[in-house]
Design a protein around this nucleic acid. Structure first.
Lengths: 335, 335
DNA sequence: TTGAAAGCGCTAACAG
DNA sequence: CTGTTAGCGCTTTCAA
């Protein structure tokens, strides 16, 4: 007995004997509408399983109700979106955004031209953007940030940067990690990571700062990809080349650390007996690792919360400053 | 010298001395437009960094250019979107969809009313939906699938279901896992998982089938949450209650398996010496675990590829059948 | 090959 | 409190 599917507020308006405007108001819960009329309209909508098109609303209101979450993979193309760090952060972001009524539009970008970000912005589907990691695209981010407010970036902070970043103090984290290894007797330490991205490079600087004026300690910068499919080879090659293994490894991520532990094991080197390893991030994988993995914890949940909070303020037109959270050394070795 | 920002195709049309229609055609790459005019318009667009609003186009064309990826968390509310299984699958989906020019709109849903899915569909932001896991919402999925074509579901297949599912053969996977434990001498085996969701319940059935007619083997169904924050307690409680520990554990997911291994270790039980553990999924965390974790591998990348492929065909109006991939037993124990 | 005009489905002045 | 009207920015007949 239903008179054709109700597709628009006009259909519903006709059914209810009111104008489309009234239906619009009733369904939006505006209080200026007669409560009985409103109630009747809503009941009708419910019965007919009608919900107004978000798209049309968005076009009209110029609000999108969606946030773009973008992962630029410029420095390390092999790295996959399913990388545990990304996914942990994105998971928290999804939770935060959902709670606040925003959709999360996810994009992975391999920046080949430097208009990747303006393309996304101009596509006009999101009210704002969260960029996950600066990769090697700091220039692009700064350029855009100069006249585009609603954007925040997870990553490292460097003096003079224009874009709003939120992250932990990577320099301090690097120093903590290095200090940890030194305190436990390591003297020949390899840093495993890709310093083309800002965060790893800050971690390495922190590590260097920790051995300042200590000529008895050797720190080797060992370029290593982030993706486990290739980092294993990087690490194996390195170990082969130097012959005598290091007695300490500072990995720029937990994933690299775990890969390193496997490579070491395959060569009959024990952890932490022969080589001590420390990771970075304190992901779930690090918490469950055996042998236990010491690491520098980044509070990713807190980071996600800050990212969303700052972004919403920016969408509202406010300026917000960069946020630098404290990393925390997590010691898990038993020896 | 730029005359105000170009925001619409009308602005650009004025600049180019043509009509908006022509600009629209030129930018869409239609061949019916004079190639010189077209070239000129595109150059102008490039110069002014103009890109037409995807939103407006979508409203007009009734295509959305976006796929909704929805994770319903009905059976286990504690479970977080950052769960490694979800995130691995979503990562692959993002890659597949990005490659094909679709945005991925991510939603996590706690189904409290049973209109969660129709709300999402009616919100009208996506051309189709990928549901990640049936949770305990198979009824809702079947009801929707009855008259909504562009939807595919990652999960288990049960006879008579209406919705299109793609997943591995969970029954077989369960049998393989169980057989593995039996072959290695386990006689008192605990199944750890939440059988309110279809996949775990199929795995348990498979496990039961493996011990059919073997009265010397005991299989305990031990309800366990998926989220590591709570599964640890579940497992500890179980161990305390039965007193004498099982000699085998079949965990419904790798994450549960790893948690179980930790709980066992904390009680001084060795793996696989005292208790043999097998997981499910073969996530990255399982591959790096020490002691090594045997598991039943689901080929998640292949699953993602099937999901997207089938969905696109459904969007084009085709029917597609459910897909059941083969699981694979991965044996990692050394003893 | 191009332009005029009519919407896609909704919201927000502005009047009443 | 409610209706009328005019768009949001684009695409697509239809006619020229």
């Amino acid at each position: 007995m239903l008179a054709g599917k109700i597709r628009t507020i006009y259909d519903l308006a006709k059914l209810a004997g009111v104008s489309a405007a009234t239906v619009s108001r009733a369904l939006a819960g505006k209080d200026m509408v007669n409560s009985e009329t409103s109630e009747r309209i809503r009941k009708l909508a419910e019965e007919h399983d009608f919900r107004p098109s978000a798209l049309a609303r968005n076009l009209r209101t110029r609000r999108r109700g969606a946030i773009g979450v973008v992962v630029p993979l410029g420095h390390d193309r092999g790295q996959h979106l399913s990388d545990p760090f990304f996914m942990t952060l994105i998971g928290y972001l999804a939770d935060e955004l959902t709670e606040r009524g925003f959709d999360l539009v996810l994009s992975r970008v391999i920046p080949s031209r430097d208009d990747w970000l303006s393309r996304l912005i101009d596509a006009d589907r999101a009210d704002g953007f969260i960029i996950v990691g600066q990769s090697d695209q700091s220039g692009v981010l700064d350029r855009i940030a100069a006249d585009y407010l609603p954007m925040v970036v997870w990553g490292g902070f460097v003096q003079g940067q224009v874009h709003c970043s939120i992250g932990t103090d990577n320099f301090l984290g690097g120093r903590l990690a290095m200090q940890h290894l030194i305190d436990r007797g390591c003297r020949k330490i390899a840093f495993l990571g890709n310093t083309q991205a800002i965060e790893p490079s800050l971690r390495l600087e922190g590590a260097k700062a920790a051995i300042q004026a200590r000529s008895d300690i050797e720190l080797m910068d060992t370029p290593t990809h982030f993706a486990p499919e290739v980092s294993g080879t990087d690490i194996a090659t390195f170990l082969t080349q130097i012959g005598d293994p290091p007695d300490g490894i500072f990995a720029a991520s937990d994933v690299i650390a775990l890969t390193a532990m496997q490579v070491l094991a395959a060569r009959g080197l024990s952890v932490p007996g022969d080589v001590r390893v420390i990771g970075y991030d304190d992901l779930y994988v690090a918490q469950t690792s055996v042998p236990p993995l010491s690491t520098v914890r980044q509070n990713i949940a807190a980071g996600a919360s800050h990212l969303v909070g700052s972004l919403l303020r920016r969408i509202a037109g406010e300026q917000t400053g960069s946020v630098i959270l404290n990393p925390e050394l997590i010691v898990r070795e038993t020896t």
